[in-house]
Computed example of a mutant assay.
Amino acid sequence: MTTFESLLTDVRACTLCARHLPLGPHPIVQLQASAKILIAGQAPGRKVHETGIPFNDASGDRLRSWLGISREVFYDAQQVAILPMGFCFPGTGKSGDLPPRPECAPAWRAQLLSQLHNIKLTLVIGRYAQAYHLPNETGTLTETVQAWPKYWPNVVPLPHPSPRNNLWVKRNPWFENELVPQLQSRVAAVLGGDNTL
Results as ranks from 00 to 15, higher is better:
142 T>M: 07
52 G>N: 05
192 G>F: 14
167 L>R: 11
171 R>N: 14
124 V>C: 03
148 W>A: 14
125 I>P: 03
25 P>D: 09
63 L>T: 06
46 R>I: 14
153 P>V: 15
135 P>I: 00
130 Q>Y: 03
18 A>Y: 05
137 E>V: 03
163 P>T: 03
41 G>V: 10
32 Q>F: 08
54 P>H: 02
99 P>R: 01
139 G>A: 10
64 R>W: 08
187 V>H: 11
13 A>C: 09
21 L>N: 04
48 V>M: 08
113 L>E: 05
141 L>N: 02
186 R>P: 10
189 A>T: 12
56 N>P: 00
2 T>Y: 06
157 P>F: 05
123 L>D: 09
111 Q>N: 04
68 G>N: 13
177 N>K: 13
116 L>F: 01
119 I>S: 13
100 P>H: 02
22 P>R: 08
136 N>P: 00
84 P>L: 00
107 A>N: 01
55 F>M: 10
180 V>N: 06
15 T>I: 08
107 A>M: 05
126 G>A: 05
77 A>H: 11
53 I>S: 02
96 G>M: 05
110 A>M: 01
147 A>S: 14
155 V>T: 03
7 L>M: 05
60 G>R: 05
123 L>T: 06
123 L>M: 10
29 V>C: 04
138 T>A: 06
57 D>T: 09
152 W>R: 14
156 V>C: 01
186 R>N: 15
125 I>S: 04
8 L>G: 02
70 S>T: 13
53 I>T: 10
96 G>N: 07
158 L>M: 08
161 P>V: 09
107 A>F: 01
136 N>L: 06
65 S>G: 08
116 L>P: 00
55 F>C: 06
132 Y>T: 08
117 H>Q: 14
105 A>G: 00
185 S>G: 12
13 A>E: 11
61 D>R: 10
64 R>Y: 10
9 T>Y: 11
34 S>F: 06
97 D>M: 09
174 W>S: 11
72 E>Y: 03
118 N>W: 10
45 G>L: 04
150 K>Q: 12
157 P>T: 07
113 L>C: 05
196 T>M: 07
195 N>A: 15
46 R>P: 03
73 V>M: 08
150 K>L: 11
89 F>R: 05
39 I>L: 04
186 R>S: 13
168 W>M: 04
126 G>F: 02
91 G>C: 11
109 R>F: 04
117 H>Y: 08
104 C>M: 00
71 R>S: 11
60 G>H: 06
